[in-house]
C-alpha cells in the first residue's frame, strides 16, 4: 500500500512541478497515439462501412480476418513492422526505424482492425431496410452512406474510443519499432516498463497513473461528443 501511495504522491509531484521529461513523454504519447487513432479511424470507419454495405464473394472471410485482427498481438505487429522498415527491408528506404513515425505506423496497424470491426458492427446493427429507405427518399449513394454513418454515430464513437485504447495501451510494438529512446521515442507505456525494470516503482506507478488519467480524459472527451444531443 505504501508503494502505491508513494507512486500516487510521486505522480502528483511530477505533474505539479510540470516535470519536463514527463511532460515530453505525455505529449509524445498523445501525438503518436492520437495520430494513429486518426489514421485508423479514417481507414477503419471507411472499411467497416464499406464492408457492412457491400456484398462480394469472400466477404465472410474478410470479416473473419478483421475480427481476428481485433486481437492482433502487438509484438507480432512490432516484429513485422520492424522487418519491413529495417534498413534492408522493403520499406527500409523510408528510414523511420526508431522514430515516432514507426510507432504511429505500428499503432495504426493494431488499431485499424479494432475500428473496422466495431464500425462494421455499428453499421450492421442499423435496421436492414434502412439503406433502401434512404435511397427510396431520393438519396444518392453517397448521401445514403453519409446518412447511415450519422445514424450509427453513437457506436462509431465507441469504435474511435476502442481504437485509441488499443493504440495508447500497446507496448510491445512501440518498444520494438521505437526503441524507447529518451526524448525521442519514449512514451508512457515504454517509460513505465523501463522504470519498473529498473525497480523505480514509484516513478513507474506515477507514469501508469498518468497513462490511466490520459486514457480517461480522452475517453471522457469522446463520450461527451458521443452523448451530445442524445435523448433517451
Amino acid at each position: 500500500m505504501d508503494l502505491i501511495l508513494q507512486g500516487f504522491l510521486e505522480a502528483l509531484r511530477l505533474l505539479w512541478t510540470l516535470d519536463r521529461e514527463v511532460l515530453a513523454v505525455v505529449l509524445l504519447t498523445l501525438q503518436v497515439s492520437g495520430t494513429a487513432t486518426a489514421l485508423s479511424v479514417l481507414v477503419g470507419c471507411t472499411a467497416g462501412t464499406a464492408l457492412a454495405l457491400s456484398r462480394f464473394p469472400g466477404r465472410t472471410l474478410v470479416i473473419a480476418s478483421v475480427n481476428m485482427g481485433m486481437g492482433l498481438p502487438p509484438v507480432v505487429v512490432g516484429l513485422f513492422v520492424t522487418i519491413f522498415i529495417w534498413r534492408s527491408g522493403p520499406l527500409g528506404f523510408l528510414g523511420i526505424l526508431y522514430t515516432p513515425a514507426a510507432m504511429v505506423l505500428a499503432q495504426t496497424i493494431i488499431a485499424v482492425p479494432i475500428v473496422t470491426g466495431i464500425s462494421l458492427a455499428a453499421i450492421q446493427q442499423l435496421p436492414r431496410e434502412l439503406p433502401q429507405q434512404i435511397l427510396a427518399l431520393g438519396a444518392t449513394r453517397a448521401q445514403m452512406v453519409r446518412t447511415m454513418v450519422v445514424e450509427a454515430r453513437l457506436p462509431l464513437m465507441a469504435a474511435v474510443m476502442a481504437g485509441f485504447g488499443g493504440a495508447v495501451s500497446e507496448i510491445g510494438a512501440s518498444i520494438m519499432v521505437g526503441g524507447n529512446i529518451k526524448g525521442h521515442t519514449r512514451v508512457l507505456t515504454t517509460a513505465t516498463v523501463m522504470e519498473t525494470g529498473k525497480g523505480n516503482f514509484a516513478t513507474a506507478i506515477a507514469l501508469g497513473l498518468i497513462l490511466l488519467a490520459l486514457a480517461f480524459g480522452v475517453s471522457l472527451a469522446l463520450t461527451r461528443i458521443q452523448q451530445r444531443g442524445r435523448i433517451g
Binding site: 431496410e129 433502401q132 429507405q133 427518399l137 431520393g138 450519422v150
Partner: peptide, 27 residues
C-alpha cells in the same frame, strides 16, 4: 426522386419529426 416508399417499419432517423419529414427534400 419521382417516387417515394413507405416501409412496414417507420425507419425514422435520429432527430426531430420536422427533420425526418424534411430529409427527402434535403437530399
Amino acid at each position: 426522386r419521382r417516387m417515394a416508399v413507405v416501409f412496414q417499419s417507420p425507419l425514422l432517423f435520429e432527430g426531430t419529426v420536422y427533420s425526418n419529414a424534411a430529409s427527402g427534400l434535403r437530399f
